[in-house]
Simulated assay, not measured.
Amino acid sequence: MTQHGEKQGETGRVTVCVYCASRPVPERYVRLAAEVGTGIAERGWRLVSGGGRVSMMGEVARAARAGGARTVGVIPRELVEREVADTEADELLVVDTMRERKGLMDAHATAFLALPGGIGTCEELFEVWTSRYIGMHAKPVVLLDPDGHYRPLLDWSRGLVESGFASRESLEALTVVEDVESALRACGVE
């Protein structure tokens, strides 16, 4: 395990930061994560993830590596055992805080892709979505929602526009798709 690593952009290659579940979930979501990892590898891209090796987080990394993709995991020290650190990652960065984790994941990424997940995934998604909307970065922010997992959240977000708490442009900063191919196409920033 290392403390520091390369930053994105060294070769201009796409590096997708994938946010997803790190706890037990229905098998269809684990298969979805594997499909995403395989698609990243097939394009010759890299993956950055939260550095865990269980559930969707582990599966996206395993599938990416199986296809030849370079994987970078970023995990806080306190979660090394809880999330079962992905010691097979090409580069595993161990940090002290969640804020450091997100900062390093952001720094390595050229695009962000959120898969179905819980409150941690939502928190990560909202941070990069907000940052894009306010102009702190111009990287694609993509939400893959194949089965309506995020439908209530998206309805609520549209309601924010209707009630004046958010602008229509803020919603346009997020690309919402229903299939892996569309999600990866939206991430392709080469």
Rank of each mutant, 00 (worst) to 15 (best):
Q3M: 08
G5F: 12
E6N: 15
G9E: 09
G12R: 08
R13N: 06
R13K: 15
R13C: 01
V14A: 12
V14P: 13
T15N: 11
V16E: 01
V16D: 05
V18K: 07
A21F: 04
A21P: 07
R23E: 00
P26K: 02
R28F: 01
R28N: 11
L32K: 02
A34F: 05
A34G: 15
E35C: 12
V36S: 11
T38N: 09
G39T: 05
G39D: 09
I40P: 12
A41H: 06
E42N: 12
L47D: 02
L47K: 08
G50P: 09
G52W: 00
V54M: 01
M57Y: 00
R62V: 06
G67V: 11
G67C: 12
G67K: 10
G67E: 09
A69S: 14
R70P: 00
R70Y: 15
R70D: 13
T71H: 08
V72E: 07
G73I: 11
P76S: 06
R77V: 02
R77Q: 13
L79A: 02
V80Q: 00
E83I: 10
E88A: 15
E88L: 11
A89N: 09
E91I: 02
E91V: 10
E91H: 06
V94Y: 02
V94D: 04
V94A: 05
V95Y: 01
D96R: 14
T97K: 03
E100Q: 13
R101L: 02
K102N: 04
G103C: 01
G103R: 15
G103E: 07
L104N: 00
D106N: 08
A107C: 05
T110R: 06
T110F: 04
A111P: 09
L113H: 03
A114K: 07
A114Q: 07
P116Q: 04
P116A: 02
P116Y: 01
P116M: 03
I119E: 00
I119S: 02
G120W: 00
T121M: 06
E123T: 09
E123N: 11
E123V: 03
E124H: 11
E124N: 12
E127I: 14
E127N: 14
E127C: 11
V128Q: 02
T130I: 06
T130M: 13
G135E: 08
G135A: 10
H137N: 04
H137M: 07
H137G: 07
H137A: 05
P140F: 12
P140I: 10
V141A: 02
L143I: 02
L144G: 01
H149S: 13
P152H: 03
L154Q: 12
L154C: 06
D155F: 12
S157L: 15
S157I: 05
R158W: 09
R158P: 03
L160S: 11
F165G: 06
S167T: 15
R168N: 07
R168E: 15
E169H: 14
L171D: 14
L171G: 13
L174Y: 04
E178H: 14
V180P: 03
E181G: 10
C187T: 11
G188E: 15
E190P: 15
